[in-house]
């Protein structure tokens, strides 16, 4: 690709070394908080007061993780964040599934079955991606009350679906727009219906965008705090809310190692997703933001 001959003068070598040095320093800036979080989470409490942030644990222990999972106090209760971790899954899985299915059908209808005003419909829904959610909190609380879903997991699933479909529709619409329409037109001529065409023609090529949508929705909903704190009760809180309660519960000595272990527990699912499917994660983040 690059056929310019590079002469390696000492100056160029020095510049190259400086370049790597800068990049490595930057990598340390991003990595160190995670490393320190991990180190702190496996130190006994007495080593935290005595040592410094970067000191390696003398007697590494998993006790803080066990406490964080099952015993630490989050507000009034002392049952750890374990239960809330599963709460998050119970909220995230249905919300991701429903919003992805709805988004796929919306995107398909908006691109392959255009009708008068379909662009307007898209613009109308797209706006939902941009509103600050503070503007819907109070009416939402009242509506959830009317629906009998106050402080329930089902209520949180509903909230996440409602405000997630704007994003999933955007993903699928932008993906299906690029899928050639000839096949769809041919199938229409042969008398294939709406769902049949979706099932046989669009769905088989949708794997990448389904992954993008699932990952995006998973990280968004898992990491949500605002809806979680506004619309949940003790036993329906997601793990982010429980983590915040745990850190702010002051009963005697602050157990920083337990705090860090709880933070790691809350962070692990999205980190794992990122490590396994980083490429799709980036694509979701940049979807619609870079034209092309």
């Amino acid at each position: 690709m690059d056929n310019v001959i590079r002469r390696r003068t000492p100056g160029a070598r020095l510049a190259r070394a400086a370049l790597y040095a800068v990049l490595i320093v930057a990598a340390l800036f991003y990595l160190l908080p995670l490393v320190i979080m991990l180190l702190t989470s496996i130190k006994p409490l007495d080593e935290i007061g005595a040592g410094t942030l970067l000191a390696l644990p003398q007697h590494p222990t998993l006790a803080p993780w066990i406490t964080a999972w099952g015993e630490a106090c989050t507000g009034m209760r002392c049952e750890g964040v374990g239960g809330y971790f599963w709460n998050s899954f119970a909220i995230v899985i249905p919300a991701v599934a429903i919003s992805t299915v709805v988004g796929a059908l919306n995107g398909y209808a908006l691109t392959k079955w255009r009708f008068r005003g379909s662009e307007l419909v898209f613009a109308l829904m797209l706006f939902g991606c941009f509103i600050p959610f503070q503007v819907v909190l109070l009416p939402m609380a009242q509506t959830l009350g009317w629906l009998g879903l106050s402080s329930s997991r089902a209520g949180l699933v509903l909230v996440h679906v409602v405000f997630g479909i704007a994003f999933t529709t955007l993903f699928f619409r932008n993906f299906y727009v690029a899928v050639p329409s000839e096949l769809v037109s041919a199938a229409k001529l042969d008398g294939a219906g709406f769902f049949r065409i979706f099932w046989r023609i669009l769905l088989p090529v949708s794997a990448p965008i389904i992954v993008v949508s699932v990952i995006w929705q998973f990280t968004q909903i898992w990491n949500d705090f605002l809806f979680g704190v506004a619309f949940s009760a003790h036993d329906t809180q997601p793990v982010t809310v429980a983590l915040n309660n745990l850190v702010n519960t002051s009963t005697g000595v602050k157990e920083y190692n337990v705090n860090m272990a709880a933070a790691m527990i809350a962070a692990l699912p999205t980190l794992v997703v990122y490590v396994l499917a980083g490429k799709y994660f980036v694509r979701g983040l940049t979807a619609g933001s870079v034209k092309g």
């Binding site: 705090n259 999205t270 980190l271």
Partner: peptide, 14 residues
């Protein structure tokens, strides 16, 4: 890029 995958709550706690 990995910090972008974290919750702001985790970032805040750390």
């Amino acid at each position: 890029l990995y910090p972008m995958a974290l919750s702001f709550i985790v970032t805040g706690v750390v």
